[in-house]
Design a protein around this nucleic acid. Structure first.
Lengths: 229, 229
DNA sequence: CGGCAAAATGAACAATGTTCTTTTTAGCTT
DNA sequence: AAGCTAAAAAGAACATTGTTCATTTTGCCG
């Protein structure tokens, strides 16, 4: 990748490495070969460098993971959606959140296990979600719970999408007729619509969550009317 | 742990190891020390055995992981809930599902990343979920999507529960007022109710999903009435 | 111009999963 | 009962991986 064939000992004329370069290379390798075949030696080889050189810019492999999380977190930060109607805003947020993972499946396992840093850009997005819900009448503590619940659903869905496609296949078991039938019918629907099983489930769950919120909201409106008259 | 102090070379009088013993020991160590400090040598030491002896009963470390997944999967299989009313049945299922992870936090990262085997006992539970929804009027393909969505939510919530408690703390950032207020208000609610933040979010999300399902169900009932008259 | 820090190489280390050989024993066969 | 085979343990060793250290060369600053 790097033009030079071999480099001697000592500081090079132009700097070859940097923290961001290492992190981006690691992310590329993660997308290419999954979490195997991606070690410090692989990152170094791809940069035309010896492994020990990496440690001048990065403290450890965990540090590289942290860097990857930062990159992903900033990508989740999307264009402002706070101006949209509440339900459309949440749907926009959920979709863009999920697309980040969909384009980098192997990273999900890393992101899901360990959380973000406190100074992450992602809090700007959180702020918008809370604001949208608060504006619509939810208490802020409850809005935060809804935010966490939706995020859990999105992360769980991303993990599901990264799993092998035939993960739930019932095979030819005869003892689970309803499930087997459901699996077959979904396969047909998948073939028709073109949307993968994981996408269908994500849309179904997101619809349920929004419908549940709408029910809460209309119930609140009704009780206020009853109280006002 | 094992009574004997030291054992010589050769097959022992009574068998010391077995696959299940190794898997259970691994699960214990995982709960005790997290995913660090738990390697083949640690498992062997705890069993009073040399590491190479493990490989007479287990193919690899991944094989041990598979064993752990099997154990967890069977624990998820709960008492039948198909006889309950549909919403109570789903709530029972979701709670028991989550409790398994709550009692073994470090295992979540293992379980969530890699899925279950096809011959797992967990399909019996899936069957019940599909049956409950189908009985209530949902198409089976849609029921499967709902099942997957709920499972994603449960897994994501379990991951959230295993994360550090202060993961989302806004610190003293002034640029996210709504979120900071929401965080403070939730802290008060947490102190009052005794339920942790992760539990609150889980309940909130589960309520939303059930409410969304109820909305779909009642809409279906209304349209059928309209069609019948 | 001199010296210090930065940034690379190269060699080595510790830990980990794993394999291979050897030894002892269990269990089946004749 | 004797003998053979396979199982099950120890023990030594290997490959890989993350990491550190000493060395060398170079940029940069006073």
């Amino acid at each position: 990748m790097a033009g030079e064939r071999q480099r001697g000992v000592g500081r090079p004329n132009e700097n070859v490495l940097s923290r961001v370069l290492i992190v981006e290379t690691a992310l590329d390798l993660l997308d290419l070969h999954g979490r195997d075949g991606f070690g410090m030696r692989d990152i170094a080889r791809r940069l035309g460098v010896r492994p020990s050189a990496l440690y001048n810019h990065v403290a450890s492999k965990d540090d590289v993971f942290r860097g990857i999380r930062e990159v992903i977190a900033t990508r989740i930060t999307v264009a402002p959606f706070v101006t949209q109607r509440w339900d459309e805003a949440l749907i926009t947020w959920a979709h863009s959140y999920r697309e980040v993972f969909a384009s980098h499946p192997p990273t999900i396992a890393l992101l899901a296990v360990m959380p973000f840093e406190t100074d992450s850009e992602i809090f700007g997005t959180y702020e918008q979600v809370i604001e949208v819900l608060y504006r619509e009448g939810w208490e802020r503590a409850e809005a935060l719970n809804i935010l966490v619940a939706m995020e859990s659903f999105i992360l769980g869905s991303a993990l599901d999408a990264a799993a092998p496609a035939d993960m739930m296949s019932p095979g030819d078991r005869a003892d689970i007729p309803h499930f087997s039938a459901a699996y077959a019918e979904r396969d047909m629907r998948t073939a028709d619509s073109g949307a993968g099983p994981a996408d269908q489930a994500f849309e179904a769950g997101l619809n349920l969550l929004i419908a549940g919120l709408e029910a809460q909201r209309s119930a609140r409106a009704a009780s206020r009317v009853a109280h006002d008259r």
